[in-house]
Write a protein that binds this DNA or RNA. Structure first.
Lengths: 154, 154
DNA sequence: CCAACAAAGTTAAATACTTAACTGTTATTG
DNA sequence: CAATAACAGTTAAGTATTTAACTTTGTTGG
């Protein structure tokens, strides 16, 4: 049976899930190996804050591609672990700024090299241009499906 | 600030999540629009069965890239809705074969055109070769991360 | 001004995923 | 043949996601 274009798109969606799972499992294995009491999702949030501390929750939601309700939940969990605190934005009191604690900042030194290592490891034997081309395909899929999500950097 | 290769890999992982989300949201909107009492995940399982009925749960887990515990849960939900039944495999009594009911089969006629439509819609202005190249990049990422997941068709 | 709307965050309920321990069945091999 | 390993499925607990309703605060246009 010859694969039609639709079959190929279908297979693409499955590969999407597989590679997503691969990244998550790699990180979770890394966290476990180093006895970090963190999940992949908490790390996504921390990574945003390590880049720019003190952003509000909606912005974290945009950057991590999560729902704002999920972010509320994750910030609760990170607060319990003493890694972040919420602070009301005095300029706009609807916002709550999320700030790293000292413990949260200290984690960066420990974890960021591992993340860099993963990115380097993942990209072995992979030309930058091929990755960019692949992203263009993904963006095109997303646009075709009518999702206009902003692509800001984290 | 010039983007390093690692930055590009990092952005790739975010785009991965975005396009994944786009596909899921498209399908959920479609299901809701047509008053289907189904989730994206249940549909993934049904799609496997519409292709080949009577496979066991582990195989469904492989095909949908899910954990077998998740599949137990989803089959429970589909059973409650009267769309599938479990049947012990008499050849190997460890297995439970999952079989479509008449209602489950009837759904195929209704839903499959929408899925085909989505795949066609998603693939507009996208050369097949570009999609294949993109999948090769994703597979390479997965291999680099040390995940050797089988890539059987569904 | 103020009424209507929009935006940020929270909450609760339903669904889903992950991990690990567990049961039962089959395969291996000493 | 019996011990052991491997495999399929279930269960339970913890975590995550989604949706919708809700509160609070800010913006805007008549």
């Amino acid at each position: 049976m010859p694969a039609t274009k639709n079959d190929i798109v279908a297979e693409f969606t499955r590969e999407l899930i597989r590679v997503n799972t691969a990244f998550r499992q790699y990180i979770q294995a890394m966290l476990r190996r180093n006895n970090m009491d963190l999940t992949f999702e908490m790390l996504q949030v921390l990574a945003c804050l390590w880049n720019t501390d003190g952003v509000n929750q909606q912005e974290i939601a945009n950057l991590t591609v999560k729902d704002k309700a999920s972010v509320t939940y994750l910030i609760d969990n990170l607060t319990k672990r003493g890694l972040v605190v919420r602070k009301e934005d005095e300029g706009d009191r609807r916002n709550k700024l999320v700030l790293l604690t000292d413990a949260g900042k200290a984690l960066k030194t420990e974890v960021e090299p591992w993340i860099q290592e993963m990115h380097a490891f993942a990209g072995v034997d992979m030309p930058v241009q091929a990755i960019k081309d692949c992203m263009q395909v993904m963006i095109k899929f997303r646009e075709n499906l009518g999702m206009e999500i902003s692509s800001d950097n984290c």
